[in-house]
């Protein structure tokens, strides 16, 4: 049995507030094999982003341990963790590009942090922009690009370090269906060609159906069921609701929490 790409061992997140403790994430185990694409499916506030952000420790779990490619991230000191994070790419709903920097400079940013030389940075950034089909936009600022183009720049930035793992936090939620599909198709291709492991947070079952081998349905800080996306057979009301919405909304679509919303 080979080491999984990602292993989460009883990770949990608890906030202490004035009104008592709040569990953003209840103790969760998760093992993701190399080359797998796993979806985290749920409504806002379900804990799916929290779980995702624990993989690269943007969020520190209050309990449990995180392993990526066999090394225990939760045991690393700050400098080692920073170094280890370069093995993990990440893309976001709002793209999170530097507004003062051009497309190429944004891609170079990931290399600049790693201390790569100027000429190597430029060459590799150009290659990465070519991979995402934006060679002609290297000198454009994010404000001059469309949403889909911005996300492609963000993907190029995530790829330029040749990471083993890509984390996607609602990466297509701010994009129109056409652009979303083209971005997802590109991610799928990356997975097939480079065997890149991906964890994809989404509230859209269509995204999970298209790209994920399995999807974890999350609610109130818990994984309530795991769906095999090749033949999904949801049992939970929420899982069933998600599958229903894939066919489109009707008056008969049952809301998992009743009409109260």
């Amino acid at each position: 049995m080979t080491e999984p790409a990602i292993r989460l061992d009883g990770v949990a997140k608890r906030y202490e507030t004035a009104h008592g403790a709040v569990d953003a994430l209840l103790p969760t185990n998760l093992s993701i094999a190399r080359g797998e694409i796993v979806g985290l499916l749920g409504f806002s506030g379900a804990g799916k982003s929290t779980l995702l952000r624990m993989i690269n420790l943007l969020e520190r779990p209050t309990a449990g341990r995180v392993f990526v490619a066999g090394s225990e991230f939760t045991a690393l000191a700050e400098p080692e963790l920073r170094h280890a994070r370069r093995r993990i790419g990440m893309i976001f709903q709002q793209f999170n590009l530097l507004s003062h920097a051009t497309a190429r400079e944004n891609v170079e940013f990931a290399l600049r942090i790693a201390g790569t030389s100027r000429t190597e940075r430029r060459d590799r950034a150009r290659v990465a922009l070519g991979v995402v089909g934006l060679s002609d936009k290297e000198n454009a600022y994010p404000a001059q690009l469309s949403g889909g183009q911005r996300q492609r720049v963000a993907i190029a930035r995530a790829l330029v370090n040749e990471p083993d793992v890509l984390l996607s936090d609602e990466a297509t939620s701010a994009l129109d269906p056409h652009t979303s599909l083209s971005i997802l198709r590109f991610l799928k291709q990356l997975n097939q060609e480079r065997g890149m492991t991906m964890v994809v947070v989404t509230h859209d079952i269509k995204v999970a159906s298209y790209i994920c081998g399995r999807a974890l349905v999350m609610e109130k800080g818990r994984v309530i069921e795991t769906l095999d996306m090749t033949a999904p057979a949801p049992i939970s009301p929420l899982g069933r609701f998600f599958m229903e919405t894939a066919k489109g909304w009707t008056d008969a679509t049952e809301l998992p929490h009743g009409e109260g919303g």
Partner: peptide, 21 residues
């Protein structure tokens, strides 16, 4: 925007790098 700082952290930037870059 907080997200831009998140992205920098995710790519392994140190506080000093985040400050200046």
């Amino acid at each position: 925007p907080k997200g831009v700082i998140d992205a920098a952290l995710a790519f392994g930037a140190s506080t000093r790098q985040i400050l200046w870059q």
